[in-house]
Computed example of a mutant assay.
Amino acid sequence: MDEQRKGQGQPAAQDAPLSYQQALERLVEAVQALSLARDVSAIGRIVAAAARELIGAQGATVVLREGSACYFLEASAMPADWSAKRFALDSCISGRVIEQRTACAIEDVQADPRIAAESDVCRSVKSLAMVPVRSAEPLGAMAAYWRTQHHITPPEMRLLQALADATAVAMENIRVYRSLEERVRARTAELEASNRRLQHEVAERQRAEAAVRKLALTDSQTGLANRRGFFHDARQKLELAERHGLDCALLFVDVDGLKAVNDTHGHQAGDKLVGAAASVLQQTFRQSDVVGRIGGDEFAVLVVEGCDASAACSRVQQAVRRFNRHSELGFTLSLSIGVVPYSAGDALDLETLLDQADARMYRHKHAKRAARQCAPLAPAPAPLVKHL
């Protein structure tokens, strides 16, 4: 066989009719090619080439059924505009072959009264062989044409019918293949939609869990970390500082006179005083520091990296003075502070540091009270800093 012809799916010039053995070999080739076809256009090209070679026809085509009409799938021997035409099954020879499920061989097309709707063919076709594509419930018909009058033999009709039967199997394979493709696409789309829904649900759940965690670790009044949140974040910072050899400082801060403000001005005013203290602390320290409200009027701050305990206290007191200069609360914000410096290797846990800073804070508070009693106009003493 001509390898180039087989590669292109086109027949070589037919110098002599194929022997029966050669025809069978060519039929096997066509059947193999049809088994790999994935669309009807490919089937049309394969069948047209194979039919022309198998029986020495000069043109071949497949006619497919479409409801009560039929149309030419591949019409190399037909007028150019026939590929778009539809013919009623009861008005053409193709329809008769399809409906009656019987083959026909017409050696003189011009003299045959059954050729009516295809009258244009008479100008270019002299002989015609046509077989149904599948005997039971035909899908269409297969036709081979000759431009010169040709004696159509029974072996030629058998070869054409064998090719038509293989074509029927190929078309059924395409139907199944397309059905499977559609099912795969539908299932893929369904899985993708389910995956999107699942991702959305996971994201929603993660957001909800994050919100719950935030509520569990956040003081609702000030927006700072609550006691649990402070311990959670501060422990992590201390562990990080220990690994990297960083110095830290823990500040214990108490709001002075909160009870007196509550008693004199009401709890709403007391809440404002607590909020003012939280705002001052939040604005004084960096985002890398941990600031939390650990009690009603008590705050804690863990300062990490480049920390100078005395400087940290000084910054807080300066921020308090700036606040009071511009405050419209009607009462003064005052904070008592105890500070404990911490160096990597001190091996003190957070609870111990907090207890020590708490004790320093109370000493600072008592020192301020004593200073007011002894010299009301004297400035408050500096916060106490314990150096370990």
Rank of each mutant, 00 (worst) to 15 (best):
R293V: 08
L128R: 00
M78A: 15
A203I: 01
A49H: 04
C122S: 14
A203H: 13
E298Y: 03
S327V: 05
D108Y: 03
R228G: 02
A216K: 07
R158E: 14
W82K: 01
L36D: 13
V290G: 02
D297Q: 11
L302D: 02
H267Y: 05
E107V: 09
A359S: 14
L329W: 08
T102I: 02
G7M: 13
R147N: 13
N262F: 05
N324Y: 01
A234P: 05
L160P: 04
A48S: 15
S91F: 00
I43H: 00
P383K: 02
P155H: 04
S127A: 09
H387T: 13
N324V: 06
C70A: 15
H267G: 04
Q317N: 00
E204T: 12
L64G: 01
E107Y: 01
V121D: 06
H326V: 13
Q8T: 15
A16Q: 13
P138M: 01
D2I: 06
C248R: 05
R227V: 06
G56W: 06
A311L: 09
R147D: 09
Q221S: 13
E298R: 01
D15E: 14
Q58T: 14
L335P: 06
A378H: 08
F230S: 06
D108S: 10
V320N: 04
C122Y: 03
A144H: 04
L329K: 06
A105K: 03
I55E: 06
Q22P: 02
L36T: 14
S91C: 08
S314P: 00
V255Y: 01
C307P: 02
